[in-house]
Design a protein around this nucleic acid. Structure first.
Length: 556
RNA sequence: GCGCUUGUAGCUCAGAGGAUAGAGCAACCGCCUUCUAAGUGGUUGGCCGCAGGUUCGAAUCCUGCCAAGCGCGCCA
């Protein structure tokens, strides 16, 4: 366990009332490394002066766990902040924890399966950037929750049963027969790549054609997603899993049994008004008795709840109209609707050559995931997509993403990772001038195993070289807080936080590198300390990149 | 009209009640005999949309307003 976590727990146990964030990273390094604001926030309810309360809390901390507080310098400042400055022993323990723990992330005690549904594009064409953003967000979420010990199902829902599939087949058929397109047909240029073997396709019945085109488009989507590093555990087909399985019929029966539906004007309605909505909603249309999206979604989400206790949907903002009705219907059926969270993605647009490209289907300026992948590659695609919070409209800077230099954030972080690896390689191998290896890997590991040695070197550094010591301490604090950032990112379903955290860590590492010579042939112990710090950087940066699904280049 | 989301530096974005609001891009001035200069140090740049309120403390919470995007079909 890291010092930050141990201290947080201690503070929480010492407070008269718990707070959700007992300890914060200090904004101003000169005051300390961590700060506790509990005395300020609790002063009112405790009817005490903040400074007095702070003194009292601090004393209680010292009484409860004198050992822990022995490793840190404390002070009460300003209106009632309690500041903590970690001393070499605490820092040494954190470094050791970073190096020796197989998994530095805290493991969740939540045993419920989490089902994350994302992308879920109709099999009617290429994936566009909205899908791409959802794919990156969804897959990062899956990684994140898995890394924290949750059981997660990554799911793609194939909308292969609706009217749009008939349209697709009709459009393809007319293109093959060189007939004029009808008003709602899919554009020929989108479909033509799937219709190259015209002779064969034209011999199929319309149903067979529909199946064939759909399979080809889906296969293409899978290929593109795979290039993007996005994989799924389940591909759920509406046709087979929701319709043919009888789940859809059963859901209608169950809704009726709960007295949640009624017939009117030849259509089947959901009593959504009585649940607080503006009006009732149609489930089965008049005449055709075809299902609406809402009706199918209700059945599909029940199927999800059969398999998972908690659901996350990554949806485009244009799907938000559905949510309230879906929630109400699920609740009416006795499902734990509050366990369904829907994340809405706002639009992505592109900027290139300094101006924004507006996406428009009509103008033909819709950019596919494949196009952008060709342009910038999977790593830059993923990282840059993740830089913005999904609720935000986001302008993707293509020129920046394709740059192979420090201005491109993904290169910046990957470079830090590769640089760390390179230093470690150098230390353990013959250098370019033929000098013997500086040390063996086993020596680095032995040093990591010896707490007293680490502490001794940190203390020495503290007294001999303030600047280097400062860079070392900043590094250790930043590294030891990474696990906390990951937990918080998972709590808020926000992998963007990790991307930003990685940039900050990379900056911290580059700063350390420029201030501290790692391999110093005149001072082996100091070098071993620094090599271990570099090793911790490599581990944490690598973990972060892995969580975001970005490659970890050994050399650049 | 109603609902959801957004409004922070010229641009793209962080900031989830705490101390002096931060990065990157763009612009300017520096730093390589030495482990990756794909790096780094500095300068310039802010009525945090507006107005109230809550609080010891508000970019953050509440209310109202303004602006933008998206929803509010027996569409898909």
């Amino acid at each position: 366990m890291f010092y930050y976590q141990a201290l947080s727990d201690l503070i929480n146990s010492a407070l008269p009332e718990p707070t959700n964030k007992p300890l914060e990273k200090a904004t101003n390094k000169t005051l300390g490394h961590f700060a506790c604001t509990a005395a300020l926030s609790l002063a009112k309810s405790q009817k005490r002066k903040p400074q007095e309360l702070a003194t009292e809390i601090l004393q209680k901390l010292i009484q409860t766990n004198p050992n822990l507080l022995d490793f840190t310098e404390t002070s009460i400042a300003g209106p009632g902040f309690i500041n903590f400055r970690l001393e070499p022993k605490a820092l040494a323990q954190d470094l050791q924890a970073l190096l020796l723990q197989a998994n530095i992330l805290p493991q969740s005690t939540n045993t419920e399966t989490l089902l994350v549904e994302y992308v879920s594009a109709n099999p009617t064409g290429d994936l566009h950037l909205g899908h791409g953003r959802g794919a990156v967000l969804g897959s990062a979420l899956v990684n994140l929750h898995r890394a924290l010990g949750r059981k997660v199902i990554a799911e793609f829902y194939i909308n292969d049963a609706g009217e749009q599939m008939n349209r697709l087949a009709g459009s393809a058929d007319r293109i093959l027969r060189k007939q004029a397109p009808e008003e709602e047909d899919y554009p020929a240029n989108l479909l033509e790549p799937y219709l190259l073997d015209r002779e064969y396709l034209i011999s199929l019945t319309i149903q067979e054609l529909r199946q064939e085109i759909q399979a080809r488009i889906l296969a293409k989507q899978k290929t593109v997603l795979s290039r993007l590093g996005v994989e799924f555990d389940e591909w759920i087909s509406e046709t087979s899993e929701v319709r043919a399985s009888g789940r859809f019929e059963q859901t209608l029966k169950d809704l009726a049994a709960q007295n949640l539906t009624y017939e009117k004007d030849g259509a089947l309605w959901l009593k959504s008004q009585s649940a607080g909505e503006e009006r009732d909603r149609v489930l089965l249309k008049s005449e055709s008795r075809a299902a609406t999206y809402l009706a199918v979604d209700i059945a599909y989400h029940r199927y999800k709840f059969e398999r998972a206790g908690e659901l996350v949907n990554v949806w485009g903002a244009d799907q938000q109209g559905q949510e309230v009705s879906l929630h109400n219907a699920l609740r009416g059926l006795g499902e734990p609707a509050e366990k369904l969270k829907i994340l809405y993605l706002q639009l992505v647009s592109l900027s290139q050559d300094g101006s924004e490209l507006k996406m428009s289907k009509r103008a033909g300026t819709v950019v596919s995931v494949e196009d952008l992948l060709d342009e910038v590659g999977a790593d830059a695609f993923r990282f840059n997509m993740l830089l913005s919070h999904p609720n935000n409209r986001f302008v993707f800077d293509v020129d920046l993403a394709r740059r192979a230099d420090d201005k491109n954030p993904v290169f910046y972080v990957q470079y830090a990772y590769a640089r760390a690896g390179s230093i470690l390689d150098n230390a353990c191998s013959v250098d370019h001038e033929g000098n013997a290896a500086f040390c063996a890997q086993t020596e680095i590991e032995a040093f990591a195993g010896d707490l007293d040695l680490i502490e001794g070197q940190l203390s020495l550094s503290q007294s001999q070289d303030q600047e280097a010591y400062g860079a070392t301490v900043d590094s250790l604090i930043a590294l030891s807080l990474f696990a906390e950032s990951v937990s918080e990112a998972a709590l808020h379903n926000n992998p963007s936080a990790i991307a930003h955290e990685l940039i900050a860590l990379a900056t911290e590492f580059h700063t350390f590198y420029s201030r501290c010579r790692v391999i110093d042939r005149t001072n082996k112990d100091l070098s071993l300390l620094r090599l271990n710090l570099v090793s911790a950087y490599r581990k944490v940066l690598g973990l972060g990149l892995e969580l975001l699904g970005i490659s970890r280049p050994h050399r650049m």
